Simulated assay, not measured.
Amino acid sequence: MTPAHTERTEPDTGAAQGLVVEGLRKRFGGHQAVDDVSFTLAPGACLALVGESGSGKTTTVRMLVGLERPDGGTVRLAGRDRSARARGRGERLARAREIQMVFQDPYLSLDPRVPVAACVEEVLRLHTRLDPAGRRARVRELLEQVGLGEREAAALPRRLSGGQRQRVAIARALAVEPRVLVLDEAVAALDVSIQAQILELLGTIRREAGISYLFVTHDLAVVRHVADEVLVLKAGQVVEAGPAGRVLDAPEHPYTRLLLDSVPRRGWDVGQRMPRQDSAR
């Protein structure tokens, strides 16, 4: 069978203004971590990058955000090539503003010694020309956008719950108004009800701000409620790709079926913030 990702139609003009990845490759020693990965993420869309540990997901997104340089292939955002090394601090900062990342562990982006408001303001100080009063006002707006108030703003990260810390990490990422938000297992460490709250928040932000999401996960239980399309990786290669409904309901590749069969629970109902029970299981 022809690989799923080669059967997709050419992106339209609108999609080309988004994130376009073509033939991405990365080798570490004798291991081919990423091998000919291609996809398009249109403005305002959400693509789920799915696979088990070691499938190449993390290496792929590290190349997208500039933490790793690809051995081959191209990464373009709004028509601009991001594959080559950035020339100078200004270009590095500009690229960082375009694609922001939210990690599974918020402590990767939060200084545990600094209050939440200052953590968010640090990003604004680095990437904007706002004066102190303007930065403080913007911090309040961002924290309100993710459902946090003055009490959380004054707290140290360790005083917050896991869900609250993840909201702070999202606020930091949104501070520079990115085109693309990479969510790397961003809800994996949260319990069921908090996962649903964060997913609902992310859906609201995407509708209101028009940001594109690359949702990186090994858990297909949440993909249906966040993704328009799904890209399945195995051993660094794309084995299946297509609309989320088709991939989840009628998977073509045995590996995709294996991932679906390993999901302990299916059928999230984000609106009720509780997982539905699947009567067929």
Rank of each mutant, 00 (worst) to 15 (best):
L160A: 01
L190F: 03
G210S: 06
R179K: 15
L202Y: 07
R138P: 11
Q145H: 07
A186Y: 14
A186D: 12
L181C: 12
R136C: 05
E141P: 13
R158T: 14
G134D: 06
R179C: 10
Q164D: 12
A209V: 14
Q164G: 09
L190G: 08
E141R: 13
L214E: 10
L190M: 01
L190S: 02
A175R: 03
A155S: 09
V180D: 12
L174N: 07
A189V: 10
R158V: 15
D184F: 00
A169F: 10
V216D: 08
V192L: 11
G203M: 03
A154E: 13
G163I: 05
F215N: 10
T217K: 13
A209K: 15
I211A: 05
Y213N: 10
R167T: 05
S193F: 13
V182A: 04
I170W: 00
L174H: 01
V182P: 14
A155Y: 08
F215Y: 14
R159H: 07
E208M: 08
G203E: 01
D219W: 12
D184H: 00
L201K: 01
A137S: 11
V216W: 07
I211F: 08
I198K: 04
D191I: 02
Q145A: 07
A186I: 12
R172G: 03
E208I: 12
F215H: 11
Q164M: 11
V187K: 01
A209W: 11
V187P: 09
A153L: 10
Q195H: 10
Q166G: 01
L181G: 02
L130Q: 04
E150S: 13
L130Y: 09
I170C: 02
A221E: 01
T217C: 15
T128P: 11
L130F: 05
G134L: 05
V176D: 04
L214V: 09
L174Y: 04
P157N: 08
S193D: 10
G163V: 06
R135S: 05
V146P: 09
L181S: 05
I205V: 15
L181I: 13
R206N: 12
V187Q: 01
A153E: 04
A154Y: 09
A153M: 06
R138G: 00
R129C: 10
A154D: 12
A154R: 12
A155T: 04
L220F: 04
P178S: 06
Q197I: 00
A153W: 07
L130M: 07
I170K: 00
A209H: 15
R179F: 06
I194R: 04
V146N: 03
L202Q: 08
T217P: 15
P157K: 01
P132E: 00
A137C: 10
V139I: 06
T128W: 07
L143D: 07
S161E: 03
P132I: 00
R129P: 13
G162I: 01
V139N: 05
R172A: 02
I198N: 01
T204F: 02
V216A: 03
G163M: 04
V192E: 09
T204Q: 14
V182Q: 04
S193H: 11
E185Y: 12
V216R: 08
L143E: 02
A155R: 08
L202E: 01
H218S: 06
A154G: 09
P178D: 10
Y213C: 08
V176L: 06
P178W: 01
I194D: 11
